[in-house]
Design a protein around this nucleic acid. Structure first.
Lengths: 126, 126
DNA sequence: TATTGTTATACTCTATAACTATA
DNA sequence: TATAGTTATAGAGTATAACAATA
């Protein structure tokens, strides 16, 4: 986070804002509840995040005609541009840091991270 | 942290409390300023931590006769016992999680972590 | 009555400045 | 005046409960 936050800030994004842009890019139109669930956040937690990136013109919040309680979220053209630019920048930064490892250690490191982060929370506590 | 916090809590320790016990074990008698610096914390940040572990009987704060502004910190017998027990418990937990990796990946993972965590903060930001 | 999104509130963590007591 | 430790204050981040609109 210390390494990546400054990168995101160059694009006017917070960590959560970036997470939302990535999630909406994978699955273009969603409700706030579905989005929150998919990124492991409480629905109340993403509201100020959505307020922020909506005000920045990166997402649209449209009422669903079929169920007027629901807001459908989608990336704007500007949101797609910002997400692509930020993600490319993040990947450059990751590349820069991972280049410090030898190629074998680098592959092993990423394998280990995937393995460890796949542990379900309840298995973390013995 | 999610994996280790519950372990520390079994010993009545917070993350910072544990860090302080480890630092005092390596270098038995210190001033608060020296301790704070050595663990990368601001001097104001560790005060409530010291209050807590002192009240728990894990450390002693003795006035330095040579300079009465200074408090010399040291582990109590109870503090040494708690530190040893907590550290052993933490290491068991690490062992349990690292056992999920193959022996080669495990060594490479630890090597990579050491390499990456040795990057000075100013090199983190491009 | 249940659900979606929102607001309000409280609690923790952290950083900074202001203070005291010594030097 | 400078330093060691302390206290006070403000700002994030987060979790929970209460709420309005709609189903």
């Amino acid at each position: 986070m210390a390494a990546e936050l400054p990168v995101l800030q160059r694009h006017g994004l917070t960590m959560w804002g970036y997470v939302v842009l990535l999630a909406l890019n994978e699955d273009p139109v969603r409700t706030q509840a579905a989005l929150a669930e998919s990124i492991g956040a409480a629905k109340t937690r993403i509201i100020s995040v959505l307020d922020g990136i909506q005000q920045a013109g990166l997402i649209a919040r449209a009422p669903d005609p079929g169920d007027r309680r629901v807001h459908l979220l989608s990336l704007t053209a500007e949101g797609r541009r910002t997400r692509a630019a930020a993600q490319a920048d993040i990947q450059r930064q990751e590349e820069r840091l991972l280049a410090l490892l030898g190629p074998d250690d680098r592959r092993a490191f990423l394998r280990a991270l995937h393995r460890l982060s796949s542990i379900p929370p309840e298995d973390l506590i013995p």
